[in-house]
Computed example of a mutant assay.
Amino acid sequence: MTKRWITFDLDGTLMQNPFVDWVFPEIISIIQQQLNQDIDIKKIIVEEHEKRMKENRIVEAYDWDDIVKQVIEELNLSTKIEVTQLVEKHTETPKVYLLENNILNTLNELKIRNYSLAVVTNGYSIYQVPVMKELGLDKLFDTVITPDLCGYAKPNESILNSLLYVGEIVAHIGDRIDHDIILANMLGITSILINKNLPNNLIEMPLEKRHEDETFLKICEEKWRAENKMKSVPFLNEAVPDYVITSIEELTDIF
Rank of each mutant, 00 (worst) to 15 (best):
M1W: 03
T2G: 07
R4A: 11
R4K: 10
W5E: 04
I6V: 14
I6N: 05
T7R: 00
F8W: 12
Q16P: 10
P18M: 05
I27K: 01
I27E: 10
I27D: 07
S29M: 12
S29C: 13
S29W: 12
I30L: 14
I31Q: 03
L35N: 12
N36T: 14
Q37C: 13
I39A: 01
K43A: 15
I45L: 10
I45N: 03
E48F: 05
M53G: 11
E55A: 06
V59Q: 03
E60G: 09
A61E: 01
D66G: 08
K69E: 15
K69L: 14
Q70M: 01
Q70R: 03
E73K: 04
E73Y: 03
E73L: 06
E74N: 15
L77W: 03
S78M: 09
K80L: 15
I81Y: 11
E82T: 13
Q85S: 15
V87M: 05
V87Q: 00
E88L: 05
K89V: 15
H90Y: 14
H90S: 10
H90M: 07
Y97A: 03
L98P: 04
I103T: 09
N105E: 13
T106P: 06
E109Q: 02
K111H: 14
L117I: 11
A118H: 02
N122S: 00
N122M: 02
I126Q: 03
K133A: 08
K133W: 05
L137E: 05
L137W: 00
T143W: 02
I145E: 01
D148E: 00
C150P: 03
Y152D: 12
N156R: 03
N161H: 08
N161A: 04
N161L: 02
L163D: 08
L163M: 06
V166Y: 06
G167I: 01
G167C: 04
I169H: 00
A171C: 05
I173A: 07
R176F: 14
D178Y: 02
D180R: 00
D180C: 08
G188R: 07
I192V: 13
I194S: 02
N195I: 13
N197C: 08
L198I: 04
L198T: 04
N200F: 03
I203Y: 05
P206R: 01
P206V: 06
L207S: 11
E208A: 11
E214N: 13
L217Q: 15
L217Y: 13
E221V: 13
E221P: 09
E222N: 15
E222P: 10
W224A: 07
R225M: 15
R225Q: 14
A226V: 11
N228E: 13
N228I: 15
M230Q: 10
M230V: 14
M230L: 13
S232K: 08
V233E: 07
P234I: 09
N237A: 10
E238Q: 13
E238V: 15
D242Q: 04
V244K: 00
E249Q: 08
L251M: 03
L251F: 02
L251I: 04
T252C: 08
D253V: 10
I254K: 02
I254N: 04
